[in-house]
Design a protein around this nucleic acid. Sequence first.
DNA 1: AGCAGACGCTTGATATAGTTAGCGACATGC
DNA 2: GCATGTCGCTAACTATATCAAGCGTCTGCT
Lengths: 132, 132
Amino acid sequence: MGRPGKDPWRDQLEGLGAFIRSQRRLANMSLRQLADLTDVSNPYLSQIERGLHEPSVRVLKSIARALNVSAETLLAQAGLLNDEGAGGAPDAESASARVDTAAAIRSDPDLTDAQKEALLGVYRSYIADNSA
Amino acid sequence: MGRPGKDPWRDQLEGLGAFIRSQRRLANMSLRQLADLTDVSNPYLSQIERGLHEPSVRVLKSIARALNVSAETLLAQAGLLNDEGAGGAPDAESASARVDTAAAIRSDPDLTDAQKEALLGVYRSYIADNSA
DNA sequence: AGCAGACGCTTGATATAGTTAGCGACATGC
DNA sequence: GCATGTCGCTAACTATATCAAGCGTCTGCT
């Protein structure tokens, strides 16, 4: 009966949950301990670990930090971080002129911090795009 | 009651929203066009762009693909991938002479003319916003 | 003028993320 | 034996993400 075929969603969540659970056990932590570290309730953590819910960015970040794994790893495990057609190239890193513009933005007194972040994000994405 | 305290989330959300909006405009897309590509409703996109809501990972990824930006970039903007308090001192930057941001953008050899235009447009809109 | 049509945005409604309270099972110590 | 502590889990609730419908404005068209 329900052979949905098209719900890769649940599978990804289960993968993510299984990964989190294994990492937690590896650290010899109980659900409640992890809950205490993450400010997320232990029942909810339990549900996440069994793939019943999709944690928000806030919760994901919190878990990643508590378990000492990078958020990228977490998302990769979940299969949620599959960018393809997009920027493609990870990062070659370091050009030359980039520094000038980026530095100018960072030191611009007319921009708020949030605006600097956003502007730098746009700038970086251009560079990445061009070098692809 | 009040949960007074903190939300650095709002700042982060506004940065993310501004980034998405600038990318969408760069691609000359309307909210509805982007909504169509992402399977996210246009009112909700509008609210995300103004920092009123925190989009889920699923939505973020969808937006990233539609806008041809890497998911990593978007997630970093969302505050998931940044932080790293590790090293301590970031790249200590020089508070050297104040550089004109607009000039730096215009003379950047890594940007196409269209990208310069777009970046300057975003920059100017920030300045205008701040002095309002 | 008037009418389409697209634009971005506000307003309620629904699905889902997330919490607090409590259960039964398995260990300890009295 | 019976308390007390933990474990992971379920149930009922609240908060929030997300949607569908509609509003006001600005174009361009005839």
